[in-house]
């Protein structure tokens, strides 16, 4: 029986549903569209939206809706990858710096300060110029710029807990220190990290689409969202749907992810 109370209880879990939906789009695009995002059909190029093509067609006659759906894998997928790697690296480095302190810590903090807000675009350009323009160099550039915030966060936590643990540790086990680190710090910061990770996935999506827009990331014929919008640029006056819809989807998905991240950061009970 669907009662009001039950609905309210379900609605509480909206973040899970949102994330689930996004995961579904990424993992099973076939559920949402049957068209091939790569097949050309030049006769039908630049058609406005219709029942046949929800978002219209692009300059090659490809269905934009399916390109958006499949593009989610690349955009969101690479964002998840970037955040995973930088979070892991950042957490480890931050924990090490915080725990061992002294010169290692001092050195790391300085390095951190440099990376922390460095314009990733510039770095990506330089990297792309050296290694080549592809998703790989874009992912590398963004990972390099994103790890410091995790390092800083974890380091702060480690420092505060270190003072508490210090007394106990110095009294009892010496070697278990590392285990105590794992057992105390990770659970304690788990919530903050997960919230941060969620938010960052949203922000990284914006960053990576920007890079692809400039040609530094995904390359044609990839349906990555930033690249889609870049491709739409020449046709902006004759095919408004081409640039508007991918952008709208991008904004909506990122808003959703950020909203979930916000909610997670305020939540204290889980």
């Amino acid at each position: 029986m669907i009662t009001r109370v039950k609905i309210r209880k379900l609605v509480q879990f909206w973040p899970l549903f949102a994330l689930g939906l996004i995961a579904l789009i990424v993992l099973l695009p076939g559920v949402f569209t049957t068209k091939d995002p790569y097949s050309l059909d030049v006769i039908n190029r630049l058609q406005p939206p219709s029942w046949e093509h929800f978002f219209g067609t692009d300059e090659g006659g490809r269905d934009i809706f399916s390109r958006v759906v499949y593009g989610s894998r690349i955009t969101i997928g690479s964002a998840v990858l970037i955040v995973s790697i930088s979070a892991t690296a950042g957490i480890l480095l931050g924990a090490i710096a915080g725990w061992f302190g002294g010169r290692i810590d001092g050195f790391l903090m300085r390095v951190l300060d440099v990376f922390l807000a460095f314009p990733y675009l510039v770095l990506a350009m330089a990297l792309a110029a050296s290694i080549g323009r592809n998703m790989g160099s874009a992912i590398l550039a963004l990972t390099l710029v994103w790890w410091p915030s995790y390092a800083r966060m974890v380091r702060g936590q480690v420092l505060s807990i270190k003072n508490e643990l210090h007394v106990k540790v110095s009294k009892t086990f010496g070697t278990s220190a590392r285990q105590m680190l794992l057992w105390h710090i990770i659970p304690h910061t788990r919530r903050t990290i997960i919230a941060r990770v969620t938010l960052d996935i949203g922000y990284v999506i914006i960053a990576i689409t920007g890079l692809s827009f400039l040609g530094l990331g995904a390359q044609n014929p990839s349906p990555e969202w930033g690249l889609l919008i870049a491709n739409a640029r020449p046709y902006v006056l004759v095919g408004w749907w081409y640039s508007v819809f991918p952008g709208l989807v991008l904004v909506l998905i990122v808003s959703l992810i950020v909203a979930v991240g916000d909610k997670l950061s305020k939540e204290t009970s889980w």
Binding site: G202, I206, T209, L252, V258
Partner: peptide, 9 residues
């Protein structure tokens, strides 16, 4: 919404 608006778009 503002955070989700890419500057190029």
């Amino acid at each position: 919404l503002g955070v989700a608006l890419p500057v190029f778009w």
